Each structure stands twice: as structure tokens, then as C-alpha cells.
Simulated scan of single mutants.
Amino acid sequence: MTSEHGHASHHDGPHRHGEEHDDAGQAEILDLDAEVLAAHIADITARLPLTAQPRRIVDLGSGTGAGTFALLDRFPDAHVTAVDSSAGHLTLLREKACARGLDGRVHTVEADLDADAWPDLGRPDLVWASASMHHMARPDRALRTVHELLSPGGLFAVVELDGFPRFLPAHAPEDRPGLEERAHAATDHFHAEHVPHRGADWGPMLTAAGFDVEDERTVTVNIDGTRSDAVGRYALRSLERIRGVAAPGLDAEDLAALDALLDESGPHSIARRGDLAVRTERTVWAARRP
């Protein structure tokens, strides 16, 4: 289960099919997401209501390692087991760990978290699931499995995004204002069918699974695009991922304007714009196994 960037649309579907080109494209977006939102991820890890420094951590739906490396940075004595369904993403994660001298603190496990039985993941003190729980076919079962997995008193951190980030100002592009919102609206039916738990309130489900929810908060993300060259690439690759799903729901003028934004060499490429921002919200639930 890869976090938040799989399937045919960009963020909102699990990576299940294993096509190499899709795997590589998804990996690039995950890496850009980690780069652009690094400070927000670090802040979330810093504010977890931990009673002690965790030594054994499981990252569910680790992708290429955004959460894994943020947790390793935050907890220097911890070891992380990174779990994902994509062998390609886990290979990249291991390569990053080696390059950073952290390979002794990272263990990767390829697994489908919708399977009836999970592999042995030890007895962690902290389980981290960032933008992965809403992909679960049976999240209630997954939550109960995490509850059984955690050591008594251990913490489960669920981080979910409020959908796909927005990048353009409302008046853009100049010839088709509001195009970005219309493109996202055109994917609503797909998301309702394939990721029905996106936007769910995980608090009651965590309580039903036996957890004590100790904290719930929403983090607002608004990053000025001029702060990082990566924002333009992030916007470009992200909008490329939703085009295939959005296209049938867009009129010819909107589709032409979207293609102009996605033309990297063209004068209207989104990557060339100086008015981009990354706007989204993340909600964090911190739940403890009694």
C-alpha cells in the first residue's frame, strides 16, 4: 500500500498493478512531496503525544520513505520497518537509506495490507500511517490488526490529506480561470468508487478498534512556490497524474488549457509560473493502545 500517490489518478488510489512506468512516476511525486512538505512532516512527528522515545517503529504504506526518514531523524535511537506493496518504492527507500548511512536502522517489507494475514512486523512502540489508511479495502480490519500489533501503551499516528493539493491561484490560467478546481471535480466519481474512505473521520473508527484517541488536529499547508524550485515540478507531475481521470469530464477548452499547463516546453507550462503555492490540509489522529 503506497501512500497517497498511486492508481490512475495521482494521489487517491493504491498502487496495485506494478507497471514500471507508473511506479517510477509515482515515486517521483512521492519524492517531490517529501521535499516540498518536509517541514510539515517534521512538525507532525515532533508533536506526537509520546510518553517515551520509540525504539521500534512501523511505517505502513511507506512509499519511497518520506515518513520513514522523518521518523529516523526525529528519533535517533529508533529502527523503522517500512511496509509497502511496491517493490520498486522499497528499493528506492533502501538506496536512500544506504546513501544516508541509515541502512542499519531500516528494514523493508513488501506486503499487501489488504491481505488476510500481515507479515511479522514485530512489536512496535509506534505505528505511522501517512495517507495510506484510506486506501484500505477494509479499514476496520486494518485498524484492529494495528491494535494487536502495537505494544501496550504504544501509539498509532494516522495522517490523512484533505484530498489533492492545489497549486494555481483561483484566477488561473488566464484563459480558463478555475480550471484546477474543475479538473478535481471531474475526478470525484472515480474517487468515490475507488477510494471511498478518503476524507473519513478516523476518530470513531480508531475508538471502535480499541484505541484511545488522545489527539486530533488539522495542519494547514500553504507553501509559497517561490520558496522552492521543486514546487513547479511537484505541480506539473501531480496534474499529469490526474489528467487521465479528469479528461472525460472536461470540455474541449478546459482540456486544451490543461494540456498547455502540462506542456513542459511550452510558454504556458505550469512549471514556469511564478504564482504557484502548495495548498492543502493534513489531519492527524494520535491513538494509543491501552
Rank of each mutant, 00 (worst) to 15 (best):
L72F: 09
H89M: 14
H107N: 13
Q26T: 15
D103H: 11
E110P: 01
E35N: 04
S85A: 09
D59Y: 08
D114I: 07
D125Y: 00
E28L: 15
T108M: 09
D33M: 11
A66G: 14
D59T: 06
H107G: 05
D120R: 10
L113K: 01
G65I: 15
T51V: 00
V109I: 10
A38S: 04
H107E: 13
R105D: 14
L90T: 00
V106F: 10
A82N: 03
E95M: 10
V58P: 00
D73H: 11
R56L: 10
E28R: 12
L60C: 07
D114R: 01
R105L: 09
G122S: 15
L121Y: 13
R47W: 01
V58Q: 05
W118P: 12
A82F: 04
A34Q: 02
V83Y: 05
A38F: 02
Q53T: 12
A78E: 12
E110I: 09
D116H: 05
E35P: 03
A38D: 10
G122E: 15
T108Y: 11
D125T: 00
T64W: 12
D33W: 10
F75L: 06
A52Y: 02
L37N: 04
A34Y: 09
R123L: 15
T108E: 08
H40I: 01
A99I: 04
I29F: 08
A70M: 05
E28M: 12
F75D: 06
L102F: 09
R55W: 00
T45A: 12
D103K: 01
A27M: 13
G122D: 14
A111K: 02
L60M: 14
P54F: 15
D116I: 07
A82Q: 02
V80A: 03
P124K: 14
T108F: 10
Q26N: 14
F75G: 04
A115Q: 01
L48I: 00
D31S: 12
D112C: 03
A97T: 08
R47H: 08
H89S: 10
A39T: 07
S62Q: 05
R56F: 02
I57P: 00
A82K: 00
